[in-house]
Amino acid sequence: MEAYLIAIGIFAGIYLLLALGLNLQFGMTGLINFGHVGFFCIGAYTSALLATNGVPVALSLAAGGFAAMLAAWPLGVVSIRLREDYFAIASLGFSEIVRLVVTSEGWLTKGVQGIPGIPRIFPGVSSQMQSMLMFGLVMVLCLLAILAMRRIVKSPFGRMIEAIRDNEEAVRSLGKEPAGFKMQVLLLGSLLAGVAGGLYAHYIGYISPDQFIPFITFQIWMAIIMGGVGRISGTVAGVIILMTFLEGSRFLRDVAPFIPEVAMASIRLGVIGLALMLFTIYRPQGLMGDYTKR
């Protein structure tokens, strides 16, 4: 049971890094990114490929984050000035292109066979100690990311991106160009997604293209919506709620053993979707949102 809880904590931390990056982009800047999983994928594959070829794991993780941030730059150059809904479509297309590339370029990524034997972050220790150290590392990175987000929110840069979120035309009328600020936010959020991808790859030990589907982005969107868009505390709360539903729904079969295992996966998705609908109807501002507003 302890190992199971530690594993959940590690996945929750990885999801929290993803959610913090997306909350910075959408919650604080209004940048609708439907392709967040693409940067997650880039970070995972970059770190995995480097580590399996002898590069130290610490450098591989850093390279994964940098590669995701670097990949966000051309996307931003091409589409950052588009209207929000058009950028959302462009980002979704980008993530699918990334997945198709890692699927088809087998000479580099081994295609659908995936990359096995990815080195652990802490070699030479027992499996239980590996998990505990991994949990500690993920929690430290999450804490650093939260502190960085708090600093950004309270800085002039944070106030500017919030102004862009609230009224981009007003910001432009003051002589400021929103595109430059949006680009910086896109890069920072992608950096967090890339680091999360590297952590995921080294923890799982095996990655393949079907692990990086758009549903991952949808889950992260669920977390920030349920927790409270634009709030760091809401991001944390949203990830906790999401993991509770994802893991708690695994035990539905104990309550209803007559349901076939094949059908249980669909029912789990239905339960999670129902939770999102209820939050949208009764708490549209999220769990940690302003309770004076409806």
Rank of each mutant, 00 (worst) to 15 (best):
F40I: 11
M132T: 06
I213G: 01
L191G: 11
I89E: 01
G180R: 15
G43Y: 09
G205V: 14
I241C: 09
S208R: 11
I80G: 00
E96I: 02
R99E: 03
S190C: 06
I146Q: 04
Q211T: 04
A68L: 07
L144Y: 04
E2L: 15
F251H: 15
W221P: 04
A193K: 06
D254G: 14
L24V: 11
Y291G: 00
M288E: 11
M226W: 07
G114H: 14
Y86A: 02
Q25N: 08
A179V: 00
Q184E: 00
A7F: 03
D210G: 01
P123G: 09
K182G: 01
E169G: 11
E105F: 14
M28V: 05
I259M: 10
K154T: 05
G124I: 10
N167I: 06
A68H: 10
L269Y: 14
L269T: 15
L191Q: 02
R120E: 07
G180W: 14
E177H: 10
A201W: 00
R83M: 10
A68P: 09
G13F: 06
F39I: 07
E84Q: 13
G197E: 09
V125A: 11
T109K: 03
F157S: 12
A193I: 10
G194V: 06
Y200L: 15
V37D: 00
L16A: 12
G234M: 09
Y206R: 11
M226I: 12
A3V: 11
R150G: 12
L133N: 04
Y282F: 15
